[in-house]
Simulated scan of single mutants.
Amino acid sequence: MNIRYLPLLVTVLLSSPSLARDYGQQGTHFPIIEPDLLEQIQSRLQTMDKNGDIDRLNQKLKARTIARVNRPKPVAGLVRATKAATRLFDPTITLQADILDHDKRRIWEKGTKVNPLDTVPLRAALIFLDGDDPAQLEWAFAQKPKTAKLILTKGAPLKLMKARQRRFYFDQGGRLTAHFDIKALPAIVDQQGRMLRIREFAMSEKRRPAQ
């Protein structure tokens, strides 16, 4: 059947006296007394707007957001290093699926072992530190080269950037320290050939990290 005739067929069927029958009331009917959910929400929002509750909630949200940006949630589980430690980290991964280019041509097949350092070297060392520890800050700024990226696990990055005139990063959610299995601070990650070297520096009694 041509789909163009479907609306006409439905109209004929519904209007035909022989097919349209009154079956009467089946079972008990109750009136719908529960108000529409969207209407409830709209009414609630209008009441909150009149009472000024929305403005107060927005101000609280703004204040919390600013506070979280100025001082992100610290990375849990990290301690100040009490002994020096050095180890190598192999960034090689095993592909879980084929890697295709924009023309759907396979570049690497599933199961291939790939070392990201072969194509994208680590151009700057990563220094992980507690931004609330003056000794760790002093030590970090004494490191060479000066191009190292300073990554906080605790502290106020924006305040430090303004005071030190140096860019700071923050390990949001502790993803980097978890990836490199860093347990103690301060620590430096740099490249050694096709491996990454991870060094944790012990804090001496004079509160300066021992080399």
Rank of each mutant, 00 (worst) to 15 (best):
D103Q: 15
R44G: 02
M203A: 14
T119S: 06
L150G: 00
E138W: 01
L6S: 11
Q211W: 12
K162P: 00
L61C: 01
K113T: 12
A210W: 07
S18Q: 10
G24P: 03
I99H: 02
Q143F: 05
R44N: 09
P31R: 09
P7Y: 01
Q25R: 12
D130T: 03
F180N: 00
R4W: 06
L45D: 12
E109D: 11
E39S: 15
L8R: 11
P121Y: 03
K154M: 12
P121S: 14
L158K: 09
L176I: 05
F168E: 03
G24V: 04
I182L: 06
R105F: 04
S16L: 03
V12K: 04
Q42C: 06
N2G: 03
A178K: 14
R175K: 14
T86G: 00
E39V: 04
Q143M: 13
V114G: 07
E39Q: 07
G193P: 00
P145W: 06
G24M: 08
F201A: 04
A63K: 05
P209G: 07
L61W: 05
K83Q: 13
P72Y: 09
T94F: 04
H29V: 09
R199I: 14
L176G: 02
P121I: 11
L61I: 14
E205H: 02
M203P: 01
L9C: 07
R87C: 02
I182Y: 05
L78V: 12
F168K: 00
I32D: 10
P72V: 10
V114D: 07
V12S: 04
K83T: 12
L88N: 04
N51V: 12
K110H: 10
L37V: 15
N2V: 14
S18Y: 07
G131H: 08
L6I: 13
K144M: 09
Q192R: 13
S18H: 03
R64G: 03
I127G: 09
T112W: 00
G77S: 07
F168L: 15
A85D: 15
D53A: 10
P31G: 05
V12E: 13
E205R: 15
R175A: 09
P35N: 00
G52N: 02
N70C: 06
D190H: 11
P134E: 01
L122M: 13
G111M: 13
S204C: 10
T119D: 12
I188G: 00
R166N: 02
Q96P: 10
N51S: 13
I32E: 13
T153E: 06
T11S: 14
Y5N: 13
A85Q: 07
L137I: 15
A184F: 14
V114P: 05
E205V: 11
P116G: 03
M161I: 04
P31N: 11
T147N: 10
I188K: 14
T82L: 12
R56I: 08
N58L: 15
A124N: 15
R87H: 09
D130C: 10
A81G: 11
L9P: 01
I32A: 05
D118Y: 07
I33Q: 09
D90I: 09
P116A: 06
D132Q: 09
Y169F: 15
D55I: 09
Q42R: 12
N2D: 07
G27I: 15
P7C: 01
L160I: 07
T112F: 02
D98H: 08
F170E: 06
L185Y: 09
Q59V: 06
H102V: 10
Q143L: 12
L152W: 08
